[in-house]
Design a protein around this nucleic acid. Structure first.
Lengths: 205, 205, 205, 205
DNA sequence: AATGAATGAGAATTCATTCAT
DNA sequence: TATGAATGAATTCTCATTCAT
């Protein structure tokens, strides 16, 4: 009697029947974020997905396409997350604090600039444009929240775009570690609080 | 009277008799900053220097060595520049404004983080450590200026490391351009002024 | 009636439909034996196979891998050949003579020692170990034949490992050519006979 | 008052005022024997000598020249040593035993064959010829000793060239180590005795 | 939908060799 | 006598990409 063949060893991550294209995109996103555009090879992506390179190419015509899609989708997700946090019915400062905490937790900074510089020569101008636009939309969510707060008189009127970018820039400080791997503040919560306080002053409150 | 001998044809990029090693380091620094570690090949560096790859290897055993040296020397130069600006006998806010203007002009952000991530896998831990330490020393100059200002009562006492990193982080905002290539403020001076104002508030003044 | 499609131009070296991997292994074996590990480049192998370097790397991750596989497979083949010759139902001396003739004909000495020394620094210890083990197994076949002969009283009892290695060592004499390219004996058969006679005496017969 | 400048650190190996050319030859010989022709670079030689590559080239026009000279000088030295041992006024078997012991001790086998194969493509035919001739002369010393012994009736008359080469070939067995690094006989003396006994039988005694 | 095989274009690195000083 | 600087040619290895199946 024929036994069911059972594959030996640890079965490769199942990904729960997610469509292959999604698996590839997710894996690629993670790898690109962790290691950068140039360092990650299509083969790396393929292997981590348990498929072959050719399969990756079946879904994405070029590495640049895969990268662009990965970054854009990621920014869209982040934008949603920001939007949700900032939509809550709470004082702005509290919402900003939550935003800060959420982002300091994410391993990934929203350091699009860096990624763009690295990939600049490899991406088509359409792709760069597309990424830029998605990035802008991300900032717009924060800008809008600031505008609303200004209108409600919650904060003094000032340049909302500057405000949005400043906030995100300040968040990067939270990821800093010195040569001995010590961050500026020992706990994430403390870090978030300090940054938001600083920012809040900066806004002129 | 014997004229100065002048070589015929396009003079081999003269670099004014600078020693080859320096030329290589300078060219490499520029290329790495513009394009990133992975993208720049040793051949690129060599060609821009008007020498062969082998010559580059004569002076630098590996690409990682060249990169590390380039980054370290650059950070040392920046540190000197910062030090000079901050040593002037003027109110802190004015010195910060000058600092801001100087750095917004430089093509180069002090975006070491990005470079380190990209090169992480290629550099030895000693090299990473060396870069980290040089980076730290850069920030220390700014920290010290803040500490002095706090002691003189020029600004409220607060966390100087946070202050230093925040300032540099805010400067990156000045390089932002949106999808249509518009910066946040049209002129560099305006940008610098706004950032410093924001920062000054953030410090609690 | 439609003819079999026949490709135009010089047919790509056909090698009788042998799988590419085998072609590469065979060609590599020959080249390594003829010229040594260091001298043979992956490009040499590729060209002789009518494929590109990248194809060679598709099948063998490194040159050391290719070399190890080539040597191991070769030793396995030799071992089989020795085994077949020594398994015949004839007096030992006759079998040894056949063995000797067979091996003097082969361009290849079983000079693993030399190969290992040359490649020592390039191979991983696992690879060296693997080669060593395969070499040992080769000698074991000869050893076993000697042991059997001792048990049957065909030759005096003595140290079989010494006997095995001595025989192979003596065979190398057959490849010697002096400065004028003269071998020690003009004919291969004579050479084999003399070596085996010498050896036979050495065994104490 | 000006102090004598004294170099810092460990003074580079002094080589006792031996002329530079000799130092280079000695170092080169050792390196080539240990690692093979291809693997040893002119820079390796230079560094081990404490001079620059250019200095090595000052004394030896090419690597092939250096190699040839190194090998030839070495073979001449070995030949002298063999000659001395074999000239003693003792029974041949004792002299052979001494020879065997001496050569099993030397790290270096007289494995000229291997070296020649490796360097074949790099040496000029004159160089190959020169090495071949020196090698032949080495064997002639042993041959002559066998001829003398035959004439004195110490051993049966047989083919002295075969005898000479067989002896040297058998000596290589002494360097064999199996996969577990065990030699065939634990002690060098035992090994030498067994080989000479075997050989002595082989000669027909 | 997925893949195995193949490749062209580079990339980093090495090295024998030359030459002006 | 010795060297520092420079190079051309090779070498190992990588990778995005293609294509027939």
């Amino acid at each position: 009697m024929q036994q069911e063949r059972r594959p030996l060893g640890r079965p490769r991550q199942d990904h729960k029947g997610k469509p292959t294209k999604n698996i590839i995109l997710d894996v690629a996103t993670r790898l690109f974020l962790e290691q950068g555009y140039q360092v990650v090879s299509m083969d790396d992506v393929a292997k981590k997905c348990g498929v072959t390179k050719a399969t990756v190419y079946y879904y994405y015509k070029t590495k640049a396409d895969l990268f662009t899609d990965a970054m854009v989708q990621m920014m869209i997700r982040i934008r949603k997350r920001i939007f949700d946090i900032l939509s809550a019915d709470k004082p702005l400062k509290e919402r900003l604090l939550e935003f800060a905490k959420a982002h300091l937790q994410a391993t990934v900074g929203i350091d699009i600039k860096g990624f763009m510089k690295e990939a600049k020569n490899s991406l088509s101008s359409e792709q760069l444009q597309q990424m830029k636009e998605t990035e802008d939309k991300m900032y717009e969510v924060l800008e809008q929240a600031l505008i609303n707060a200004m209108e409600k008189g919650e904060i003094p009127k000032s340049h909302p775009q500057l405000g949005a970018h400043s906030f995100v820039a300040l968040l990067t400080v939270g990821n800093y570690k010195d040569a001995d791997q010590h961050p500026i503040f020992p706990s994430l919560d403390e870090m978030a609080k300090q940054i938001v306080d600083f920012y809040w002053n900066g806004l002129g409150n």
